[in-house]
Design a protein around this nucleic acid. Structure first.
Lengths: 334, 334
DNA sequence: CTGAAAGCGCTTACAG
DNA sequence: CTGAAAGCGCTTACAG
């Protein structure tokens, strides 16, 4: 592999000049630029980003911490981040923290990331966050004080669905949550459900809410387990919200096995707007948002903060969501 | 952030010794090790992997090139790779080459990876592969000469399904492919279908095979489009193979819209063994393999090759697959 | 068993 | 506009 030095020698310039050409410094004479480019081409020169990172103190490397990578939900957001980042000269590493989490946190610190986007619902250890902060890593979705927060505001879409269900005549509306009660209530969907169910004329029986405490399970498994539990409780219900589309799929399977039809016996509403939901039978009603644009917005704010640390104060990044009504919702049977 | 030098000073040793402690060299005196460790702890020392990579000429960084990250299929294999790699001190970067591919190939080269695993079905540019080869990057799933090849041998499972369909009385079996005819025929499933369909008593009408040429589409979209095309051809069929589970979901939706039931009118067989398939109605028959173990095997062979370049010649990594029969297959209506 | 020193491939003031 | 030189944080023979 050709190195900087060889390129410099062949071009008849110094390594510093090669560097200036590489970084598109405008003050380099055009003829010099050409000489250097020719030499690079001839030698098949490929720069070494690790060396650049070390010398410049900037890695141009953004990390993304995710959980449950088998959920296609993240993939599109990540694509948005990646695309924007790539256009701005950053690479992206997805750290899947499903398993072997703690081993990987160390690795993250060692890589001297410029930024880190967090999609974990679990809390991350505070000493890990401390290291990142000292390293001056720009953060997205960590604690509010020192991080951008991506805020999917589901309140509007959630209320829209509650209105739709009420107008269709539903009274007993269940909620299958992939999380525990605490996380459920701080979530904008769970919170809205709890706060407004009475006002919309829905039952306030807490037995209609099923929680999950096992975060090892995949969402579809949780949905399936949840509906079984709900059915076992013997309460009447004609509609249900699920935390996400995958868990809604699991719930629909459970309904089918219990001899219940969707939406005839039970209307089902998911969340995330997975492409797959449109191909289910019945197609799944969900809450959608532009995940690609969301990823680009995240990357934009993050890179801006990396490059102008003082300019942009950490803040909330709002994401617009919308209700997408499909076949899985109808009026309840009389 | 504390650096090597500060640790050395505090511990009263040289930076070289700190390095030896970091790398667990056995010849360092125990008391020295302790002094150094204490100093590192006191200073919250976090090593810099970029610097290490530069100095050692080894990045401990494995890349994974994937296409269609919204397909959960890859996620589990990647988890297997990641887990094994993390245990052996490597980090993993997933390069999503769905979009902006060529920009990203450059970045891959600059990162001085130790290894690269390829899950792209599209061919990669030969000059890209040339650079990687010159960089001595260990490769998985590139051209056979200079790479490990992961070989999911679907032949057995495919023949099992052909036998099952024949025994159930199916004669007109379709195939919905997410790829073009060339890739279809080199694939072990497509190839087996073409080679053996006559022998199993199935129609050899090529109109029963639907290809796809638009690689921008998601698998579920392709399956949906394919089944529409097949139905439009007006040929009779009572069973179909789909390239993967997601495209099978799309096909099942298309059948439903055409007023056909699965498996009553048409039996459907996917491939990949997605967890989600068990929750479909009907649950999807598929071909499965242990994706986690597959990922671990890939990482094992790759890291072994990285660390002993001469020891392990490039070779084929065989993956056992098995037919998983579910509700989506039954006898054809008379 | 440890230290001093050269080197990995780059960047970046600084002189000129 | 360009070159010489110091430095980024590490590793690694080499002496002792």
């Amino acid at each position: 592999m050709a190195t900087r030095t060889e390129v410099a020698k062949l071009a008849g310039v110094s390594v510093g000049t090669v560097s200036n050409v590489m970084n598109n410094k405008s003050f380099v004479k055009e003829s010099t630029v050409e000489k250097v480019r020719r030499a690079m081409a001839e030698l098949n020169y490929v720069p070494d980003y690790n060396a650049k990172s070390l010398a410049s103190g900037k890695s141009n490397h953004i990390g993304i911490a995710v959980y449950e990578m088998t959920n296609p939900y993240h993939a599109e957001i990540i694509q948005g981040i990646e695309e924007y980042a790539a256009e701005h000269g950053y690479i992206t590493t997805v750290f899947m923290l499903d398993n072997t989490r703690d081993k990987k946190l160390d690795e993250i610190c060692k890589r001297r990331l410029d930024g880190l986007v967090n999609f974990m619902s679990n809390e991350l250890p505070s000493d890990f966050i401390g290291i990142l902060t000292r390293q001056n890593v720009s953060l997205v979705n960590f604690a509010p004080e020192n991080s951008f927060i991506v805020m999917n505001d589901y309140t509007g879409a959630m209320e829209e669905y509650m209105r739709i269900l009420r107008d269709l005549g539903h009274k007993n509306v269940a909620y299958l949550s992939t999380t525990d009660p605490t996380r459920f209530s701080v979530d904008t969907r769970g919170g809205t459900f709890l706060a407004r169910r009475k006002e919309y004329g829905f039952s306030t029986d807490d037995d209609l809410i099923v929680y999950n405490y096992n975060y090892e399970l995949k969402s579809e498994e949780i949905g399936y387990k949840n509906i079984k539990q709900l059915l076992a409780r013997g309460k009447k219900f004609t509609a249900l919200f699920a935390t996400n589309d995958l868990s809604a799929f699991g719930a629909m399977r459970g309904l089918h096995e219990a001899g219940l039809s969707c939406p005839g016996d039970v209307s089902v509403i998911g969340c995330d707007g997975l492409s797959l939901g449109r191909y289910m039978v019945p197609s799944l009603s969900t809450i959608s948002f532009d995940k690609r644009a969301c990823g680009e917005m995240i990357a934009g704010a993050l890179i801006n903060h990396i490059e102008n640390p003082s300019a942009a104060p950490y803040t909330v990044l709002p994401v617009k969501t919308s209700a997408v009504l499909n076949e899985s919702v109808s009026a309840p049977k009389q």
